[in-house]
């Protein structure tokens, strides 16, 4: 994850905020957090492709409605 560390320095600025927000809302930052949690727990992480497939497979089984 390219975002700042917890409680880290103030990046501020619209650009940094937007960059972070777009990464988070698109889910692009989730893999890095997954890697972090695997590292912390001593687990072997899935590859990026396998991780994304697992996420899509979950979505396949749990459809989310879109409102009118």
């Amino acid at each position: 994850m390219s975002g700042p560390e917890p409680g880290g320095r103030l990046l501020g600025g619209v650009h940094g905020y937007l960059r972070w927000y777009l990464r988070e809302i698109s889910g692009a930052g989730r893999y890095q957090r997954y890697l972090d949690s695997c590292r912390a727990e001593g687990r072997t992480p899935l590859s990026r492709a396998a991780y994304e497939r697992a996420r899509v497979d979950h979505r396949e089984r749990h459809p989310q409605g879109r409102c009118c």
């Binding site: 994850m1 975002g3 700042p4 560390e5 917890p6 409680g7 103030l10 990046l11 501020g12 600025g13 940094g16 905020y17 972070w20 988070e24 930052g29 957090r33 972090d36 949690s37 912390a40």
Partner: peptide, 11 residues
């Protein structure tokens, strides 16, 4: 929780 990595200050 692992930090959601917001760039904003902890205010």
């Amino acid at each position: 929780m692992s930090n959601p990595s917001g760039p904003s200050p902890s205010s």
